[in-house]
Nucleic acid binder design. Structure first.
Length: 488
RNA sequence: CGGGGCAUGGCGCAGUCCGGUUAGCGCACCUGCUUUGGGAGCAGGGGGCCCCAGGUUCGAAUCCUGGUGCCCCGACCA
């Protein structure tokens, strides 16, 4: 047997690492906390990126690119922002190397010290707002709706493939508006887009909500979030959209002249999703046999495996199928390797998460059928060659829907309403999951519960119903339940 | 930043305690033959600054000293 992965029940964390490596998504690199994203993983990211990019553009956004390096002084202009990121910044201090006088390799040339250190961006608010000052002068320049696809670096103490790497890829939208209302509407719109993307494309159900003050982005007035539940019932923050108020406009003195000829500070938002989504995708759908991908994002949706190997008759049938599938916009590959045997190929493509496999064998062809196998349920059936293309097209849709429903059921089965602290602890220990409980609205209570249980408030759900209740910890009055969970 | 582990061919490991021929095994790779409907078999073959720097010794992957790096588990974070 070739590649074995650890069962989820045995060690969920190890299972996750095994999937990432053995499905060919990424590998560790020579640099601490930084991974190599391999072609299969990057193809997945490209599909996600392309779809998100389309959704951004459909809502009036444009792309631009800002520098990787940020002058140190910029970062400190917004007090909360710098406090939030200072502890995890990589700093560029010199610009030249020289031969080691002692003869071994190269060393930093001390004479090439920078006057002002440069920070490798942990996020780009500061350099972008410094630029916006020059871009914005009139209400006619607003709204300014810009997105950037970029890499950022956060020197995290503990890293995990895709979920928390020191360097990661993401998009960060940065918008400027004339009014508070417009900016809030923008941040809510982008949250909706993230939720739509997560559910319709990733087949990953999410809950839209707003973060508490404790969990808010450094420098934001409000942070909106989409929260997903992983298979181990822990929560994953999958995307955030921030209403920044006028904090950055004031810090970087970005003003516009309104129609009444008054200088006003602009209102801002920023929003981002990252390669972390790939981690979420893995932990939502995959199983002990490997990766499971939603068809809409799978780099290859269908693989055709000739049984036992390619040959004129099989090739002819395969090529006809490929042409028809491609005609319907379905991404299909044909495995013509003659050395590897079918069994090996089956296992390999299951590991890599290709949603549908078509097996074409001589025996089947005599009966005018092919074998169609779906990755999500691992079911196989014989399908008449005539209707095979339509069958596969429908199957892809069915898999996409099935994955979403399965994940949704899992979340519902692991969500609990809890009204007292004893039950809270018991449920969290025995079942984990999302705990809907009343909360008095104070950071103090939130932190105490975290200390007691390791659970944090993931969000205050946006569509939560109003309901009079008492805080699960303090007994003080509360109007709405919030979601507590252990999180990644 | 604490706790643990690891560093030997592309990958996964043994060998290290107790120094001694040519550093070994599985997978992968190359050649050939036989195979091929769920991870093929046999035969042959190629590939190693044994993490780095010092030291001990006739002799170091192995012992000593000092580094460095990565991974995993916690606290902090997307």
């Amino acid at each position: 047997m070739g590649k074995e992965i650890t069962d989820r029940s045995e060690d969920y964390s190890q299972w996750y690492n095994d999937i990432v490596k053995k499905a060919g998504l990424a590998s560790n690199s020579a640099v601490r906390g930084c991974m190599v994203i391999k072609p299969h993983g990057f193809a997945l990211w490209e599909n996600m990126r392309d779809q998100l990019d389309k959704m951004f553009k459909d809502t009036g956004h444009v792309n631009a690119y800002f520098p990787l390096l940020i002058p140190k002084s910029f970062l400190s202009k917004e007090a909360e922002h710098v406090e939030g990121f200072a502890k995890e910044c990589a700093v560029v201090t010199h610009h030249r190397l020289m031969n080691d006088p002692d003869g071994n390799g190269v060393v930093v040339d001390p004479s090439a010290k920078l006057e002002e250190e440069l920070i490798i961006r942990p996020t780009s608010e500061t350099i972008i707002w410094n630029t916006y000052r020059d871009w914005i002068s009139s209400y006619r320049d607003l709204p300014l709706l810009v997105n950037q696809w970029a890499n950022v670096m956060r020197w995290e103490m503990r890293t995990r493939m895709f979920l928390r790497t020191a360097e990661f890829l993401w998009q960060e939208g940065h918008t400027a508006h004339a009014t508070s209302e417009e900016a809030v509407a923008e941040s809510r719109q982008m949250l909706d887009i993230y939720a739509q993307f997560a559910e319709e494309w990733m087949a990953m159900p999410v809950i839209k909500g707003v973060k508490t003050a404790n969990e808010r982005f450094a420098g934001a007035e409000d942070t909106y979030t989409i929260e997903a539940m992983m298979q181990d019932t822990k929560a994953l923050q999958a995307g955030t959209s921030h209403f920044l108020g006028q904090n950055f406009a004031k810090a970087f003195d970005v003003t516009y002249l309104d129609a009444n000829q008054k200088q006003q500070h602009v209102w801002a938002t920023s929003w981002g999703v990252s390669t972390r989504l790939i981690g979420g995708l893995i932990m939502t759908h995959s199983d002990d046999d490997g990766l499971v991908l939603p068809p809409k994002l799978a780099p290859q949706q269908v693989v055709i495996v000739p049984i036992p190997k390619p040959g004129p008759e099989i090739d002819e049938v395969a090529e006809k199928l490929i042409a028809e599938l491609k005609g319907k916009g379905i991404r299909v590959i044909y495995d013509q390797d003659t050395k590897k045997r079918p069994g090996f190929k089956f296992a390999e493509y299951e590991m890599r998460g290709i949603p549908v496999r078509i097996g074409i064998g001589k025996r089947d062809l005599e009966k005018g059928v092919v074998e169609v196998a779906r990755r999500d349920t691992k079911e196989k059936e014989s399908v008449a060659l005539d209707g095979a293309v339509d069958f596969v097209e429908n199957l892809l849709t069915e898999i996409q829907d099935n994955l979403f429903l399965k994940a949704l059921k899992h979340r519902e089965a692991n969500s609990f309403e809890v009204d007292d602290m004893d039950t809270f602890k018991k449920v969290l220990e025995e079942k984990g999951g999302f705990i809907y409980a009343h909360w008095d609205g104070t950071s103090e209570t939130e932190l105490k519960i975290k200390e007691l249980t390791k659970a944090t408030i993931r969000c205050i759900p946006l569509d939560g119903k109003e309901e009079a209740g008492k805080c699960v910890f303090s007994g003080k009055p509360s109007k709405q339940r919030v979601i507590f969970a252990k999180a990644y």
